[in-house]
């Protein structure tokens, strides 16, 4: 009989793990607390670094899950995990031969950085709002007009002890570069300023895209973190920063301020980890067994990880890792059940 693996979370990581397990003759079951598959990546407009529409990646994954008749439970939250099954919020227990934690991340809530006025000022938005606007085909100011001057702020809710988020979210720098280019394409005469502390371009083609944003799209990169934002009487946003490369304070008024929100660990990680006997990394993400050969293994036999549950990751890294997870689960099941 096929071994059964419960996958907690039906985002990119969960779907890819399920498909890979299925192709290995293992029976995957996805438990997703949302009403559909896809996780966060379902909401993105175009993906860095290639500007591929997110739907071109995410839709075929979900279609294949259906075509392969992989069982999915929607609107069900997993509240406890062990190597032989999971417990749902409904109280139902779901037995399994192995469990994969693919619970992903939580978007940083920009309201918590009050100094930037998200939720208070109409024209302060997050990178996620911008993706949504681009999906709707319209990026406009609150009064319906086009922005002529836009600031993009890096590291909102990342690398910031004031909001207990000490880690780098890894994907927001390249998201900021991508969105700056998209804005310049939409509004060629607008001026776009990216305010950054460090520019982290870790992936293939990222540094090249950064340079393209600078040289070809004339995006202005200012090294310095915006310290505060205030709304003017005509709903523009006044910002202050230090231009650290000239060593002088800088102030300017923009029409729109985009906050590049970080990837935080899920709040429920602590409770989930304690039911499973797992520990968390200092940033609240699940702790991988080691940093080299055990990146998808947990400290407990039979419990595995896939995707952004262990650290901020790009979609490409998430999908690649999920294939590794499936192969590790397969190896574990073979060793455990078939050898004797």
């Amino acid at each position: 009989m096929a071994k059964r693996v419960v996958i907690v979370g039906g985002g990119a990581a969960g779907m890819q793990t399920a498909l890979e397990l299925k192709s290995r003759g293992i029976e995957p079951v996805i438990v997703e607390r949302d009403i559909e598959l896809g996780g966060k990546a379902r909401g993105w407009h175009k993906l860095f670094p290639s500007f591929t529409p997110a739907g071109d990646i995410m839709r075929p994954l979900a279609d294949r899950i259906r075509a392969e008749r992989i069982r999915c439970f929607y609107g069900q939250e997993v509240t406890a995990i062990s190597s032989d099954g999971v417990m749902l919020r409904s109280g139902e227990r779901m037995p399994a031969d192995a469990v994969v934690i693919a619970t992903g991340f939580t978007l940083f809530d920009a309201h918590r950085k009050q100094e930037y006025g998200y939720g208070l000022y109409d024209n302060v938005i997050t990178s996620v709002d911008l993706e949504r606007m681009m999906n709707s085909g319209k990026v406009l100011l609150a009064d319906g007009s086009e922005p002529r001057r836009i600031a993009i702020l890096h590291c909102v809710g990342s690398r910031d002890e004031k909001v207990c988020q000490k880690h780098c979210s890894k994907v927001c720098c390249i998201t900021g570069v991508k969105q700056a280019i998209e804005l310049k394409e939409m509004f060629p005469t607008a001026d776009v300023f990216n305010f950054y502390m460090d520019i982290r371009m870790f992936g293939p083609g990222y540094e090249e895209l950064y340079r393209e944003a600078q040289q070809r799209y004339n995006v202005h990169f200012v090294r310095g973190r915006i310290s505060e934002a205030a709304e003017t009487i005509n709903k523009r946003i006044q910002i202050k920063a230090e231009d650290t490369l000239t060593g002088r304070p800088l102030k300017m008024t923009v029409d729109m301020l985009v906050l590049l929100v970080g990837m935080s660990a899920n709040y429920e990680n602590e409770a989930l980890a304690s039911t499973a006997g797992l520990s968390l990394a200092p940033n609240g993400y699940f702790k991988a067994n080691d940093s080299f050969l055990g990146v998808v293994r947990s400290e407990r036999e039979g419990i595995f990880f896939a995707g952004a549950a262990t650290a901020p990751k790009s979609l490409a890294d998430t999908l690649a890792e999920a294939a590794l997870t499936a192969s590790m689960v397969d190896e574990y099941l073979k060793n455990r059940y078939n050898e004797k």
Partner: peptide
């Protein structure tokens, strides 16, 4: 403070326009 609202950016734009690699 560098005042990006009142600074005359036309000259700097012209410089960047002539040599975009400066950016």
């Amino acid at each position: 403070a560098i005042d990006m609202d009142n600074n005359d950016l036309r000259k700097s734009n012209a410089i960047i326009h002539e040599m975009p690699e400066l950016q």
